[in-house]
């Protein structure tokens, strides 16, 4: 699924705004049909990185290679990339049909022909019946799909998405998320998707790239990044992990791997329950250890209600040695 590799290559890519370094020497290689999520907090440089790939930001140093072509200094339209903007950037004065046909119009395709092609692409996103509308007359999800159709009509080799789901309400977000994944599978081109939402990245990505402060903290398959976060930052940013001091250094333990035990071992600690959150299928237990460490444990609801616990109670939290993962640095 991830072969052939080296479809998009970023080589020591750097972006400086005056004295400020937004992207600090990033190198990354992605496969030809990978869904890549660049994940990080705001200001970590992920948007600058995407905008450099798209050609909307001048590269300070380094190279961008797409399918063996160095596209570092090419104009946005000559790169074979298509960008989806956070605000969708649908032209407010043009109908949905004219928005989608816009790239063809710029290339001088005559009106009836470009409208015909535009409608084919609108059919693919099931919006052909709304072709006469203005963007302002569409819902957020519909606008999103128009923007996708408009990006697809340029026949891109790579799709770049800048926080594509952040403007949608939570319900729609899940729906569009699966549509994006299905679309990527159908087009069989790489999607580079920038987000600050962890579950979005986990749900979509073949390759997760966690960024912090202009550099990559960890890049790998979603499963690998979630199970074995490389650094404390990654573990904390992904959430659902506990950081515990062990003999060799700090380790991370997934919250759902922490059990309420009875026998004191090397892999356990005493803590006082400070909060209990009911989350439907599971209970999230927040507890404070004797060394004032905050620990969260996710317990299946059936287990919890067999042995209910109250806030303020003392518990012994334990985990398997294999579930404790040593963090770098």
């Amino acid at each position: 699924m991830n072969a052939p590799d080296k479809y998009l290559e970023l080589i020591n890519l750097t972006k400086k705004y005056g004295e400020v370094t937004a992207v600090d020497g990033i190198s990354l290689t992605t496969g030809a049909t990978q869904y890549v999520c660049i994940l990080g907090p705001s200001g970590c440089g992920k948007s600058s990185l995407l905008r450099m790939i798209a050609g909307h930001e001048v590269v300070t140093s380094g190279d961008i290679v797409l399918e063996q072509n160095n596209i570092t200094d090419l104009a946005p339209a000559d790169r074979g990339s298509a960008m989806m903007f956070q605000s969708y950037a649908l032209f407010p004065h043009l109908s949905v049909r004219d928005n989608v046909a816009f790239p063809l119009k710029m290339r001088g395709v005559e009106k009836s022909k470009r409208h015909g092609v535009a409608e084919q692409f609108l059919e693919r996103v099931q919006l052909d019946i709304l072709a006469d509308r203005l963007p302002s007359q569409l819902s957020g999800g519909q606008q999103q799909r128009v923007a996708l159709a408009r990006a697809m009509i340029t026949n891109p080799q790579i799709m770049l998405l800048d926080e594509p789901l952040s403007a949608l309400d939570p319900f729609l977000r899940g729906k569009i998320r699966s549509e994006l994944k299905a679309l990527q599978r159908a087009l069989a081109i790489p999607f580079i998707h920038v987000t600050h939402t962890q579950d979005e990245a986990l749900a979509l990505a073949d390759l997760i790239v966690v960024m912090n402060d202009g550099h990559i903290e960890q890049a790998g398959p979603a499963l690998e990044v979630y199970n074995t976060p490389r650094t404390e930052f990654v573990a904390r940013f992904l959430g659902g992990h506990n950081i515990v001091e062990a003999e060799k250094g700090k380790v991370s333990i997934r919250s759902d791997r922490i059990k309420i035990g009875s026998k004191k071992t090397k892999n356990s600690l005493n803590a006082t329950v400070s909060e209990i959150e009911y989350q439907g299928s599971k209970i999230v237990l927040l507890a404070r250890s004797e060394r004032d460490l905050e620990i969260s444990a996710e317990i299946p609801d059936s287990d919890f209600f067999q042995n209910p616990i109250e806030v303020g109670e003392s518990v012994l939290l334990s985990w398997k040695a294999d579930d404790a993962h040593l963090l770098a640095g």
Partner: peptide, 13 residues
């Protein structure tokens, strides 16, 4: 909104 122009450039204008 500058992204209108960036989108246009992206789409080959």
């Amino acid at each position: 909104d500058k992204s209108y122009e960036e989108a246009a450039r992206d789409l080959g204008a």
